[in-house]
Nucleic acid binder design. Structure first.
Length: 974
RNA sequence: GCGGGUAUGCCGGAGUGGUCAAACGGGACAGACUCAAAAUCUGUUGGCUUAGUGCCUACGAAGGUUCGAACCCUUUUACCCGCACCA
């Protein structure tokens, strides 16, 4: 077989599509719309690699599928051409960013077109064009008027390498998202967009979209809403606010910690402590951002004391490195018993730890009696240990020993000792002031009861070896008993199971809880102890009550805190949308008048100066105040690129509008985007900003929907040699590497068939050949068809089933499974010698989304008019799908493999080559096999004869027929 | 540390309670075609065993639920991704 001429075919159809504007769409109210969109790329002059190809193909397959399914599909493509990368690339090449961007757009457009994607190129856009960014400025002013854009001095993230500030979202883990440079904090006056005003709505509306849970969670976490209580602590006769989500632990507060970065820290530091605090701060300052994050919790006492508003206790105020200055109030109440950070801090500086929560509501509550008893146990334990007697406390607290169940309100102290120590132990107890009540003995155990005050104490012999053995078998070991363990023990008693454990472990655990000598903070909710009037409440109840109490006394209130900060939009760079603001000494900050938009980005600037090149253009900077017409200065900061990407999908709907950002009728027809496709890395950046932007636009009456992207699909990353395919890693396979050799259809088909699109995939050079083979096979098969005939019911069933399954798979992005079914269909068709045109057409249509060029070509070859791209997706007929055929096939398959198996054995053992097969079936199964006689002969290469077992004239010299079973015919070979 | 995900045969990857020694593709091996190779076609590809049967071992590891588990539960290990001192 000669490889099909993919080069010619692909060029031919790409040209035809372009000339015909096949994929151009307009609003059509009679047709249901569907908007498929891939995140628009940042244009670079280099070739697309397989990661890109995969991404765009995922979208194109879907767009083509939906288009054929009868939707009016909007599938546009544009370019995110503003931004720092263009500026740096331009600098490197010594050309103007504009030249660079436009050159890149030209190149990348060419590459994108070579993919054969069904984009509507009439609707393209590029964010650096004044026609586009004019509207960035327009919206900015609208937001400014609504108070949603404002200027403020704040500590912001600064990237030294990029010479610009970054939004919080762009400072990933303290590093610049683009260049990886350490981010430093700087106090600067900057423009912000008030995304925080929409924080609740941004969380709430997530349930209106069908997005991967992961992305939703990431957004929720990023917004970081937490309900809590703001509590006033009095320090030096002044009230200081503290935010907490755990007001139920207020009785456990043993100190306060103020952030080392808190602007008013020094107000709290007493004269005596000043030097010490300053030394501490100095040390922190010298640490880099990263070291800072890894640093151990450290602090220094400020010398001041706070008054707990509920208990009136006096609490030391510390300055600490682990408190974030710009979250909450920048100061926290520390509850070491119930917060791990506070715990570590308290341990380090020897601050008291006070337990006020017992984790499980029904777990052991150390009341007075129990405390007394525990102390008694402790006394006994110590005495026994001193005398080298090993003790196992049985059934006292928790699950102890090897047969006892936990009980909640213990009445007696019960323990076991080894038989050899028994008498000695008894004596020791008497020495402690115990009085004997009763002594028992049976063949297994000895047992004595004592009285001590109102306590009962029992001592018995304990089968040490047995206990150990059981424990060993179960492999249970709790080196550090803790509250979690106890809670677990309690859970076990509820299920009536038995559990082994060491008595002294439990004892230690309980004593720890009572004495505050715990090994880790208990952070789970539970019931309150040591909490005055609030004792015995559950954490949830206590939060409510304590907050109410504080509100009543005007010492605190319920508040909601968010982690998300306002969106920092200004950048000190050239290549972006100029912020349309003017500073006038008289009138202050003034927006540029709408009629004067756009504020054009001047091309003539000096790139050699440090800082923002825009400052070098006097004509740009010096302007007049729009209000008083006096001398004024233009804002030289530009907008971050995420402004551009926050609404570009709206502009696609009406990209040539000169008078408005878009016509809202058009936007309301096409929007929201039904299927958005892009990488997960934008989860808390672009995807969050765009949602915010749409909410603002809805409030301003520009759009009538809440969410821009109904469905979101995150494609998996393409790997090669174990690393993400990327230019910087040098493990790139370019589009042309494959398309030159096999054609772009092969590349598309392969990328879609190796694994499901949302999973990461490993690139394989060999694997591509499989897809190429398939397309060759398809080409040979379809172009070799001489004439059409009738379809068998069997084939018809297969065709219909394939349509059904492929349709379902495409709908769910299970492209890889769809491809498998298409392969199987071609195989079945190849086997037949008669089929109708409709079946072949169906096959081509199923193939089409994956391999659009070859399917167009073959479609034409069948004598059809172009374009298959605009043809109707095949419809299946459920009635024609008959599982009987599948079963038949299986049965035949099995029988022929049995026959082949026997042939192999005969050949090897008897060195004979049989030529005839006699098959003996049950009478009712005879037709099943005789109907498929030809199939059987083909598979076995022998003459086949089928008999029913009761056929009188059957040829059966070795009487094999008696071996016949239902579904398993007997076989004789000769 | 917290949250999410993944783990399947030589490899890539389907499969989420019986029809599973496990789709499909790649690779390897054998056969057909050919002077030969490539392409193409056919078959084999966990082990033992057998005129087509049967048995064992296997879906990261260990337990458990079930008549029955690659699939459900628990624990655990490794890798990937996200967040990271958020009170």
């Amino acid at each position: 077989m000669v490889d099909y001429d993919f080069k010619k075919i692909e060029a031919k159809w790409q040209k035809k599509w372009e000339k015909d504007k096949t994929f151009h769409v307009t609003e059509n109210v009679k047709k249901k719309k569907y908007y498929v969109l891939e995140m628009y790329p940042y244009p670079s002059a280099s070739f697309l690699h397989m990661g890109h190809v995969r991404n765009y193909t995922i979208g194109d397959v879907y767009a083509r599928f939906k288009r054929m399914s009868g939707f009016n599909v909007l599938y546009p493509m544009g370019f995110d051409s503003f931004g720092l990368p263009a500026e740096t690339a331009a600098k490197k090449e010594g050309i103007h960013p504009k030249t660079y961007a436009e050159g890149s757009i030209k190149k990348i457009t060419e590459y994108l077109k070579a993919l054969g994607n069904s984009y509507d190129w009439e609707r393209t856009l590029a964010s650096h064009e004044p026609d586009y960014y004019k509207w960035n400025q327009f919206f900015f002013i609208k937001m400014f008027e609504k108070g949603l854009a404002y200027r403020k001095k704040a500590p912001v993230n600064w990237c030294e390498k990029c010479q610009s500030v970054l939004a919080n979202e762009e400072a990933e883990g303290g590093k610049c998202w683009r260049c990886g440079e350490e981010v430093v904090k700087k106090d600067l006056e900057q423009w912000f967009l008030k995304i925080t005003a929409y924080a609740d709505k941004l969380i709430e509306d997530l349930n209106k979209v069908e997005w991967p849970e992961k992305i939703k969670t990431m957004q929720v976490n990023w917004i970081g809403k937490s309900d809590g209580t703001e509590i006033d602590f009095e320090i030096n006769n002044e009230r200081w606010k503290v935010f907490t989500t755990r007001p139920d632990t207020i009785y456990g507060v043993t100190f306060l910690v103020i952030s080392a970065q808190h602007p008013r820290l020094m107000d709290l530091v007493t004269k005596e402590k000043k030097k010490e605090v300053e030394g501490f701060l100095k040390k922190l300052k010298s640490a880099s951002e990263k070291e800072f994050a890894d640093m151990e919790k450290e602090g220094v006492f400020t010398g001041s004391y706070a008054i707990n508003p509920v208990t009136k206790e006096k609490l030391p105020v510390w300055a600490g490195n682990f408190v974030v200055a710009d979250y909450g109030a920048g100061m926290v109440m520390a509850v070491p018993a119930h917060d791990q950070r506070d715990f570590e801090f308290a341990k380090k500086y020897n601050i008291p730890i006070k337990t006020v929560i017992i984790p499980n509501k029904e777990a052991i509550k150390p009341d007075e009696t129990i405390s007394k008893m525990l102390l008694e146990i402790k006394r006994v334990n110590e005495l026994m240990q001193k005398n080298k007697i090993k003790v196992w406390f049985n059934g006292t607290f928790g699950v102890i020993g090897h047969y006892n169940k936990i009980f909640i309100k213990p009445r007696d102290v019960d323990f076991g000792v080894l038989e050899k120590d028994y008498e000695k132990a008894k004596k020791l107890l008497l020495g402690l002031g115990y009085s004997k009540i009763e002594e028992k003995e049976n063949e297994k155990f000895k047992h004595t009861s004592y009285k001590y005050g109102d306590l009962i104490l029992e001592v018995g012999t304990f089968d040490h070896d047995l206990g150990n053995e059981v424990a060993n078998i179960k492999g249970i070991s709790y080196p550090i008993p803790n509250a979690k363990w106890l809670a677990e023990c309690y859970e076990i008693t509820k299920t009536k199971e038995r559990r082994q454990g060491r008595g002294d472990d439990v004892l230690a655990s309980l004593l720890n809880i009572i004495s505050g000598n715990i090994s880790e903070a208990v952070t789970e909710y539970g019931i309150l102890v040591n909490s005055g009037d609030f004792n015995d409440l559950t954490s949830d109840e206590a939060k409510e009550h304590i907050t109410n109490f504080l509100e009543l006394k005007k010492l605190g209130k319920k508040v909601t805190q968010y982690k998300i900060r306002d969106w920092l939009i200004s950048r000190q760079r050239y290549w972006g949308t100029p912020i349309p603001m003017i500073f006038c000494d008289k009138c202050g900050v003034q927006p540029v008048k709408e009629k004067d938009l756009p504020v054009l980005l001047p091309e003539k600037v000096d790139f050699s100066v440090s800082g923002n090149p825009l400052n070098s253009n006097k004509k740009f900077v010096e302007t007049k105040c729009p209000k008083c017409n006096g001398k004024a200065r233009r804002e030289t900061d530009t907008m971050g690129g995420f402004m551009d990407s926050s609404w570009y999908f709206l502009r696609y709907c009406d990209n040539k509008n000169k008078t408005k950002p878009f016509d809202n009728k058009k936007v309301n027809y096409w929007m929201p985007v039904n299927q958005y496709i892009g990488g997960a890395e934008h989860a808390v950046m672009h995807l969050l900003y765009a949602r915010f932007f749409i909410k603002v636009l809805k409030n301003l009456n520009y759009v009538n929907f809440d969410e821009p992207f109904t469905k979101l699909f995150n494609q998996g990353i393409v790997y090669k040699d174990g690393a993400k395919m990327s230019k910087s890693k040098g493990n790139v396979v370019y589009q042309t590497d494959i398309s030159d050799k096999y054609g772009i259809d092969t590349a598309r088909l392969f990328l879609m068939s190796v694994s499901s699109p949302e999973k990461q995939m490993e690139w394989s050079d060999e694997g591509v050949q499989g897809s190429f083979k398939f397309l060759n096979k398809l080409h040979t098969f379809v172009s070799g068809i001489k004439k059409f005939g009738k379809v068998s019911d069997k084939l018809d069933s297969k065709v219909n089933k394939a349509i059904k399954e492929v349709t379902g798979d495409l709908e769910q992005f299970s492209y890889n499974l769809a491809v498998i079914k298409i392969r199987a269909l071609l195989e079945s068709l190849e086997k037949e010698d008669s089929f109708d045109k409709k079946s072949i057409e169906a096959l081509l249509k199923l193939v089409h989304p994956f391999a659009p060029h070859i399917s167009e070509e073959l479609w034409e070859k069948l004598g059809n008019k172009p374009f298959i791209s605009l043809e109707k997706w095949p419809v299946y007929d459920e009635k024609k799908i008959n599982s009987k055929f599948d079963e038949e096939e299986k049965v035949v398959e099995k029988l022929s493999s049995d026959i082949n198996n026997i042939i192999a054995i005969i050949k090897e053992r008897q060195n004979k080559s049989p030529t005839k097969v006699f098959v003996y079936t049950l009478p009712q199964e005879k037709n099943l096999y005789s109907d498929n006689l030809r199939e059987l002969e083909k598979k076995t290469n022998l003459t086949v004869k089928v008999y029913a077992v009761n056929d009188k004239d059957k040829h059966d010299p070795e009487n094999k027929a008696q071996k016949t079973k239902p579904g398993k015919p007997a076989i004789y070979l000769e």
